[in-house]
Amino acid sequence: MAVLRILLAAMLLFGATGYGGPVAAEPALRIGGTGSALGGVQLLLDGLTKRHPEITGVVLPSVGTSGAVKAVAAGALDIGLTSRPLKVAERGLGLAVHPYGATALVFAVRRDNPRNTIRSTEIVDIYEEKITAWGDGTPIRFILRPPSDGDTEILLRFLPRLASAWQAAAEKRIVPVAYTDQEAAELIETIPGAIGPNSLSLILAERRPIRALALDGVMPTVETIRDGTYDLTKTFHFVTRPEPEPAVRAFMEFAASPEGRDILEATGVVPLREGK
């Protein structure tokens, strides 16, 4: 299975250093999945190991939501991180799904971009190439995600008019396409005039040098996600086997603790109660 080969290669490459620091050669917890959750989960893992030094772990590079589900089912991951519920075909794998937080899906720009806010109609106009430059004259370079990507599906439900422009841009094959959340952030960081979708959680947890724009006058924050005024959001889930090992249970209990919830909120994630 391709995802298992990727995970094994990643563990060999990152097993000594992990996502954010040294770990034991044989970690008790192997965590991976959607890229937008990795930075915050690394901070949760760091907090857990400070409280329980006997629990070691590694957060692997992004394998996406689908890859996480397959890897947990195959035993290559102890905790998968997903940004959507399980699909019908995945529900027969016998996995347990634990929603733990919601974050904002945002349009982000480089820090040197003078814009702070954008309207939904402007986003469509940008991707339809009706608006081609920022106010200071810098050409706009928009970033795409693959059509099958979960963020793309959420965006197109939120902005149905964007669908035809998104498809037309993808067919031209001259527009940068980011296949992971981290790659999307890197393209926004490095391309002058870039704008593209990303997650508030990734920007804050990884301290990326990009800015989330206010959408239709509403800034994406924990408060606006919680009260529903910023409604372009997605939910993160922990995916585990039906009877998790003690270290997995300890991790999820820490994530739900006051300390864990503080970590989540500091990284732009509104904690959810189990089953919400």
Results as ranks from 00 to 15, higher is better:
I154Q: 04
I263W: 00
T224E: 01
A2V: 14
G64S: 04
V269C: 01
P139V: 03
V269S: 02
R141F: 03
S199F: 06
D216S: 10
I118L: 11
A256M: 12
A104L: 14
D216C: 12
G33D: 06
T56W: 12
V175I: 14
E223Y: 02
P246L: 13
F14D: 11
A212L: 00
S201I: 05
V97S: 12
K234H: 08
A266S: 15
V269H: 02
L38W: 07
T56Y: 08
A184T: 01
V58C: 11
G268A: 07
A10I: 05
E245W: 00
G21A: 09
V69T: 06
K172G: 13
E189C: 11
P114Q: 07
S83P: 02
A169Y: 10
I123G: 08
G217W: 13
T132A: 12
V3F: 06
F254Y: 15
R208A: 02
L7Q: 02
L8I: 05
R273D: 15
R211I: 01
T121R: 12
A185K: 00
I6D: 05
A250P: 09
I143K: 10
G67I: 11
A212C: 09
P114A: 12
I154D: 04
A16T: 10
R110A: 15
I191M: 04
R111Y: 06
G75Q: 03
G21K: 06
G150T: 14
L4E: 08
A73V: 01
H52T: 07
V63P: 12
I131D: 11
R115A: 10
